[in-house]
Design a protein around this nucleic acid. Structure first.
Length: 483
RNA sequence: UCCUCAUUAGCUCAGUUGGUUAGAGCAUCUGACUGUUAAUCAGAGGGUCCUUAGUUCGAGUCUAAGAUGAGGAGCCA
C-alpha cells in the first residue's frame, strides 16, 4: 500500500486517484464525532493543512477509538474519497487504524486551541506540533535554502569560518569562553592568573561573534564568498530582537565598492522575500490570518498598516531608500518629534549615534520604506571600515527595516595597510593578535566589501512574528537553555 | 543591566472597598445528539491564588524582598 505524505495527498496533481488505497501517518490535531461517525484531523508536518480521516465508529474497537486524542500518533490505512463535507475536497475513509503512540490528555499540554507564544516557549519540545510553529519551521527551511541558492547562483563560495576562535579582538560584543580546564580547580601562573597555556588550545579561546574577518581572508583570494553559520554573543540582552546564539549570513566580495555592496544586499533581501511568496504561500497565508486576529485585540492606532503578504510584496516592489547619515541627521533634526522634544534623545549635533527611536522614525514615519544609511561618522563604527577622504566618515551601510530596525550591517573594508594599522592603534585593537588580518593588506590588497545579515531578524520580517525566540527552534538567551 | 507591567484550575482569563464555601470559557470525564470543521447541548470533577517575610481580628486583594515572564531602553545582527 502506498505511503503518502499529507502534502502529496492534498495537492492537485497527486500520484493516486479517488478510490485508491493508501497509508498515511501523523499526529491528531482534533477528533470530533459520535457513535456513528468520527472525524480526525491528522497532520504530519509536511503542510499547514490537515487531512480529514473519516471513521465508521461501528467497525472499530471502542477501546482503540477512546485512546485517540489531540497529540496521539496514528497510522491509517484507507481509501481516498471525495469529501461529503464542505471544508475539504478529499478525505480518507479509514479501513485500518494503528495507534502508534498515546497522548494522555491529562498530561499532554498542547490542546486544539490557541495557546500563547509564551506558553509554547515553555514547551519548546512540543511546539513543533502547533500550526504556527510548524509554519515558521517550514519557512525557516525555505529561507535557509533560498539564501544558499541566491549566492550559489551568483557564483559565491560558501566558507565555514571557525566557531571556536582564538581572537578576542573582533570588538562585536561579549564572548562565551571555551575551555576544557577544570573550573573548580584552575591552574594558575606564578602571578596568580589562570594559566591558559595548559588549556586545550594552549591559549584563551571563545565562541565566535562574527565570521567576517575570516571571510575577508577567503574573499581576498576566492573573490566572492559568504558564510552562514552560528554566532554567539554573551551580552545580557533581554529583548525580543536579540539571541545569545543566532545564525548570521556574511557575504564578502573582493573588488567591490560600497554601492555594489548595497545592491547585493537589496537584491538578496528581495530574492528571499520573493522565494517565500512563491514557495510558502499556505504557511504565509496562515501566519497572515493569525496576525490579523492578533491585531484585532490592539487599539487601532497600534495596528500594522499592512497585512503580512501585502507588506512583503510592498518591500519587493519598491526600491530601498539610500541616504547618507548626514542627510538622516538633517531629516531628524527638522522632524516634528525632535522639535517638540518627543524623542528621548533629541538630535542636536552631527556625530551622535542613532537610537532605535530615530531609526524607527526614518523607516516607519518619514520614508515608509526600507532605508540604507551610509557614510557614518568614523567614531561610532568599527575599526575595519574604509575611511572616506573627508577624514570624518567611513563607508558603513546599515539597512533598516520597519518593525525590526537594523537587519543588515556592513561596509566597504579599509584596504590600505597604513590607514588600517593607524585606526587599530587609535581604537586599541591589539595588532599582534591580528597579524594575519593585517597581512592581507600587506600582500595584494584590493578594495572589498561585505555585510552581515541576522538570519532570525530576517525571519521576524518574513513571518511577521514579534519575538525572535519564536523564529528559532531552540532559542538561547540569558537564563534560557532548557531545551 | 535599567524602566514599566504581569503571575489565580491543564490552557486563556475575571475576581468589587481587605470580609462567608475563589468564578467563567475551553480541555477532561459522564450522558444526549449529529457528515462534523477549534462540532453542539446537559451535567460532573478539577485550586500550593508564583515564593518568602510582614501589616491586620481577617490577605487572591495591602507592604517588602526574591523568582519567572512580557513590553520598552541600552548593546547589536
Amino acid at each position: 500500500m502506498k505511503k503518502l505524505r499529507i502534502v502529496d495527498i492534498l495537492k492537485s496533481e497527486r500520484e493516486i486517484s479517488i478510490g485508491d488505497k493508501l497509508t498515511v501517518m501523523g499526529w491528531v490535531r482534533t477528533k470530533r464525532g459520535s457513535k456513528n461517525v468520527a472525524f480526525i484531523a491528522l497532520n504530519d508536518g509536511s503542510t499547514i493543512n490537515n487531512i480529514q480521516i473519516v471513521v465508521d465508529v461501528q467497525s472499530f474497537d471502542e477501546n482503540l477509538l477512546n485512546k485517540i486524542y489531540t497529540g496521539t500518533s496514528l497510522s491509517i490505512e484507507g481509501e481516498l474519497i471525495e469529501s461529503l463535507g464542505s471544508g475539504q475536497q478529499v478525505e480518507i475513509q479509514a479501513n485500518n487504524i494503528k495507534l502508534l503512540g498515546e497522548a494522555n490528555p491529562d498530561e499532554y499540554p498542547i490542546q486544539a486551541k490557541k495557546h500563547t507564544l509564551e506558553f509554547l516557549r515553555d514547551h519548546a519540545h512540543l511546539r513543533f506540533r502547533t500550526s504556527t510553529f510548524s509554519a515558521i519551521t517550514r519557512i525557516r527551511h525555505a529561507m535557509i535554502f533560498a539564501i544558499h541558492k541566491f549566492f550559489n547562483d551568483k557564483g559565491f563560495v560558501n566558507i565555514h569560518t571557525p566557531i571556536i576562535t582564538g581572537s578576542d579582538a573582533e570588538g562585536a560584543g561579549e564572548m562565551f569562553r571555551v575551555t576544557t580546564l577544570d573550573v573548580n580547580n584552575l591552574p594558575l601562573t606564578e602571578d596568580k592568573k589562570v594559566d591558559f597555556s595548559q588549556d586545550f588550545f594552549g591559549k584563551e579561546t571563545n565562541l565566535t561573534v562574527s565570521g567576517q574577518l575570516e571571510a575577508e581572508l577567503a574573499a581576498l583570494a576566492m573573490g566572492q564568498v559568504y558564510t552562514f553559520g552560528p554566532t554567539f554573543r554573551a551580552e545580557n540582552s533581554n529583548t525580543s530582537r536579540h539571541l545569545a546564539e543566532f545564525w548570521m549570513i556574511e557575504p564578502e566580495v573582493a573588488f567591490y565598492e560600497i554601492d555594489e555592496n548595497m545592491d547585493l544586499a537589496e537584491d538578496m533581501l528581495k530574492y528571499v522575500i520573493k522565494y517565500a511568496l512563491d514557495n510558502c504561500a499556505d504557511d504565509l497565508a496562515f501566519l497572515s490570518k493569525r496576525l490579523i486576529d492578533e491585531e484585532k485585540s490592539k487599539p487601532e492606532k497600534d495596528r500594522a498598516p499592512m497585512e503580512l503578504i501585502e507588506k512583503l510584496k510592498f518591500v519587493l516592489e519598491n526600491d530601498f531608500i539610500r541616504a547618507d547619515y548626514t542627510e538622516a541627521i538633517e531629516i531628524l533634526r527638522n522632524s516634528k518629534p525632535n522639535k517638540k522634544k518627543k524623542f528621548q534623545f533629541v538630535i542636536d549635533k552631527w556625530g551622535i549615534d542613532l537610537q532605535s527611536e530615530h531609526e524607527r522614525y526614518l523607516v516607519e514615519k518619514h520614508f515608509k520604506k526600507p532605508v540604507i544609511l551610509t557614510n557614518y561618522p568614523k567614531d561610532i563604527k568599527a575599526f575595519y571600515m574604509k575611511q572616506n577622504d573627508d577624514g570624518k566618515t567611513v563607508r558603513a551601510m546599515d539597512i533598516l527595516f520597519p518593525g525590526i530596525g537594523e537587519i543588515v550591517g556592513g561596509s566597504q573594508r579599509e584596504e590600505d595597510y597604513t590607514k588600517l594599522r593607524n585606526r587599530m592603534k587609535e581604537m586599541n585593537v591589539p595588532e599582534q593578535e591580528m597579524w594575519w588580518y593585517l597581512e592581507t593588506r600587506k600582500f595584494g590588497t584590493v578594495p572589498h566589501s561585505g555585510y552581515g545579515l541576522g538570519f532570525e531578524r530576517l525571519m521576524l520580517f518574513i513571518t511577521g512574528m514579534g519575538n525572535i525566540r519564536d523564529v528559532i527552534p531552540f532559542p538561547r538567551a540569558p537564563k534560557l537553555a532548557e531545551f
